[in-house]
Amino acid sequence: MSGNPQITRRAFAAGLALAGLGGKGALAQGFAGLGMSGEGFAPVTPGKIFSFPEDHGPHPEFRIEWWYVTANLTDTSGAAYGAQWTLFRQAMRPGAQQEGWANQQVWMAHAAVTRGDTHRASEKFARGGIGQAGVEAKPFLAWIDAWEMRGIEPMRDDMIAPLELKASGADFVYALRLDADHALVLQGAAGYSKKSDRGQASYYFSQPFFKASGRIVIDDKPVGVSGQAWMDREWSSQPLASDQTGWDWFSLHFASGEKLMLFRLRQTDSNHYASGNWILPDGKTEQIASADIHMTPKTSVEVAGRQIPVDWDIAIPRLKLSIASVPLNAKSWMGTSFPYWEGPISFGGSHSGVGYLEMTGY
């Protein structure tokens, strides 16, 4: 993601430079310079033993980190909605944590709601060290201003549930409760998620088993909603190689109860790096190698002056899986400081279900 100001999501990097928090150097690097050397920051290495609730909290010795929730929802009439809540942390420089305004941590957050006929998004920025934003591991709380993801009793650290989630923008509000009955899922090799064959990686775990319920308000019109949600937690100091220009990422809820996480990191030589995790209804997982994943962009639409591939074919022959996905709203454009496409999708074929798609770098 380095050097490309269109790449955000888990790579939220240069947005804070626009807010006056990073300066020209950060902007030139694409916010956190995700494809550049992580020298001075903590490295990501295999063999980490995850510990909860500690790993629900921040890891300031690493350069970048995020707490990311997406929800596929319906109202009582069956109409589909999507909701997104994201908090990003970036360390502007390595070293001991400073106090107050001298603190080197900066925060950015995105929230969005999507319906078939509209997509609404909002963005916030904060400086670390002054209490405006942050994350506490126990009792769990992630916040920026009035946006919150808060643990409620009886909180299960191994599930990071139940949670209350709330955010608002100029023309939308949502408040959701997230419950789970399965433990967290480690992505990659026991939480060590490779992003290239050259050593780039992150620590990565998910809660794909959230059941969501609550309310969305769009243009002052409230509606009760329920459905499924997915949370990703990821941190790193150098997650991408310098020749990777963006990614295409899926989180899928199958009607039969399975879950699937897939991503494809696009490389300038077209030898894209892919990875996946097939998650059974009981929480057991099966890693899927890059060579076994076929992700093919199909129909593109013009969004914000760019051609965005919103329809995809996905095949994993080893799992006898062949599906085609379509967006709820093809215009699900996050017009944030460094924009990207993210929105709810549905899919059919050998399997059916719903999920979320994110595309950066287009």
Rank of each mutant, 00 (worst) to 15 (best):
A137M: 08
V354M: 04
R198W: 02
E61D: 14
N4W: 05
A175R: 08
V44K: 05
G82R: 00
A304R: 12
H294Q: 14
P5F: 04
G199M: 01
L163Y: 02
F347V: 04
E302C: 11
Y340K: 05
G361Y: 09
L27Q: 14
F50M: 09
V225G: 11
G25R: 08
A189F: 11
F347E: 10
F52I: 11
R120K: 15
L240Y: 04
T76R: 03
L328Y: 00
G199A: 06
I293C: 00
Q104A: 08
E153N: 13
Q187D: 00
A291L: 00
N103H: 06
G3E: 05
Q287Y: 03
I152E: 14
I218W: 03
A175W: 04
H59P: 03
R120D: 13
I218V: 15
R215H: 12
D292K: 03
A80G: 01
L163Q: 07
G20D: 13
G3C: 08
V303I: 11
A189I: 12
T86D: 07
S346K: 11
S251H: 00
E39L: 06
D219I: 07
S193K: 01
S352D: 10
L27G: 09
A190L: 13
R93T: 14
M359A: 13
D313E: 13
A96H: 08
S332Q: 10
K124R: 15
H294C: 06
R115P: 05
H110K: 09
I49G: 08
N277M: 15
S236W: 00
P281N: 11
N329T: 12
W66S: 00
V301F: 10
P339D: 09
D292L: 04
L319P: 07
A126G: 12
K194M: 01
T45Q: 15
L34D: 15
A190W: 09
G82Y: 01
P239R: 02
D311A: 09
D243R: 02
A291C: 01
R233M: 12
I279C: 00
S37N: 12
D158M: 09
A102N: 02
P327C: 07
P139W: 09
S236T: 02
S256H: 05
D219G: 11
I308Y: 07
Y204E: 02
M155C: 09
I323A: 11
L186R: 10
L328R: 04
G129M: 08
V69G: 04
K284A: 14
Y68G: 05
Y68R: 03
P139F: 08
L184V: 06
H59D: 01
R150G: 09
N72L: 05
P208I: 05
T299C: 02
G191P: 10
T45F: 06
Y68S: 04
P309F: 07
A137F: 08
V106I: 15
G343C: 10
L260W: 02
M149Q: 11
